[in-house]
């Protein structure tokens, strides 16, 4: 299988404050595969997505590393890069309140596929039906405020599909939704991935979401990737103490599992006052003197399983 996306030593900074938000992360993604980015709030998951989609906000810049896409040899320039679409955490505020759902979808269809008029309307209806919104014809005239968050997320997904993306980036797509809606949206993403063969980067702080959708996962902490592994490996044999702690603090609904969730002590350090060495050492029970000196480089734990830790948790 070919690599669709290769990110090497990516560095993203706030130049005005000389603060590194993302500090040298690397990962790759194969066509049709799903990568999960997991970690606590503020660890740089979303910024990684924005950097890949080339939509970093004002005042934040990519200052190092490379982001390479597999290029289509039949095209040149930017057109040769794979199409990327993105969906966001809060779908309702990501939709323009003065435009109808129809305008939103039809203008995207025009931009991406050159469809106009009736063709665009029919395709917009088909997309809405595909993402599970019924009475599509009348819904095209509706405004975002008339829809629930879950429906708006479906609209965003329909809009992303209009671009026929080879890569869909989903930044916390279910965080703002209620639980039943979460399950439906995840199911929809699974279906669409199988149907279109697009690759997916899914960001979540919820390991359950990652476990369900991702093939491969990268655990992030303070702007660094601390562990990468196939999802099953990560859940069963986490090597980095932080990954282990994330799994331990998930509540279980299995009645046989009597162990209470264990919270991670302390809190995420601020980016402008990161502890030296391994950024996790102040919260880590396995930390030694070595951990406070130098950030550990990634070492192989298994096949395609790496962790940046001097004292990985034994399998």
């Amino acid at each position: 299988m070919s690599k669709l996306l290769t990110v090497r030593d990516l560095v993203v900074e706030v130049p005005s404050r000389r603060m590194k938000i993302i500090d040298g992360i690397s990962f790759s993604l194969e066509a049709g595969q799903t990568l999960g980015l997991v970690g606590e709030s503020g660890c740089g998951k979303s910024m990684t997505c924005y950097a890949v989609a080339n939509m970093l906000p004002r005042g934040i810049e990519r200052t190092g590393g490379s982001i390479e896409f597999e290029r289509d040899p039949s095209k040149s320039g930017r057109a040769a890069d794979p199409t990327i679409a993105m969906i966001f955490q809060d779908p309702t505020s990501s939709l323009n309140p003065v435009h109808t759902i129809g305008y939103y979808l039809e203008s995207a269809l025009y931009r991406n596929q050159g469809l106009k008029g009736n063709d665009a309307r029919l395709e917009a209806m088909r997309l809405l039906e595909r993402v599970g919104i019924d009475r599509a014809k009348s819904r095209l005239r509706a405004y975002p405020h008339q829809f629930s968050g879950g429906m708006n997320q479906r609209v965003m997904i329909a809009h992303a599909l209009a671009a026929k993306p080879q890569l869909l980036i989903a930044d916390e797509p279910t965080t703002a939704l209620d639980v039943t809606m979460q399950a439906q949206i995840l199911h929809l993403l699974e279906e669409l991935k199988a149907e279109t063969g697009m690759a997916l980067i899914i960001v979540s702080h919820d390991l359950g979401v990652i476990a369900r959708l991702a093939d491969h996962a990268a655990v992030m902490y303070c702007g660094k990737v601390v562990e990468t592994a196939p999802v099953a490996d990560l859940l069963q044999r986490p090597a980095h103490p932080y990954a282990r702690a994330l799994i331990d603090c998930m509540p279980s609904i299995d009645p046989a599992d009597l162990e209470p969730p264990v919270p991670i002590p302390g809190s995420v350090p601020l980016l402008d006052s990161l502890p030296k060495g391994c950024h996790f050492h102040p919260r880590c029970s396995r930390a030694t003197g070595e951990c406070t000196a130098l950030f550990p480089s990634p070492s192989a734990i298994g096949r395609v399983h790496e962790a940046s830790c001097y004292h990985p948790v034994a399998a």
Binding site: M55, F88, V98, A108, R111
Partner: peptide
């Protein structure tokens, strides 16, 4: 500064259209 403008930019909507069709009506 609203998220829907960032989303429109991410879609590759041209800047002039962002101002005229997306921002000014709001």
């Amino acid at each position: 500064g609203q998220p829907y403008i960032a989303a429109a930019r991410a879609d590759g909507v041209p800047n002039i259209e962002i101002i005229l069709r997306h921002a000014l009506p709001n």
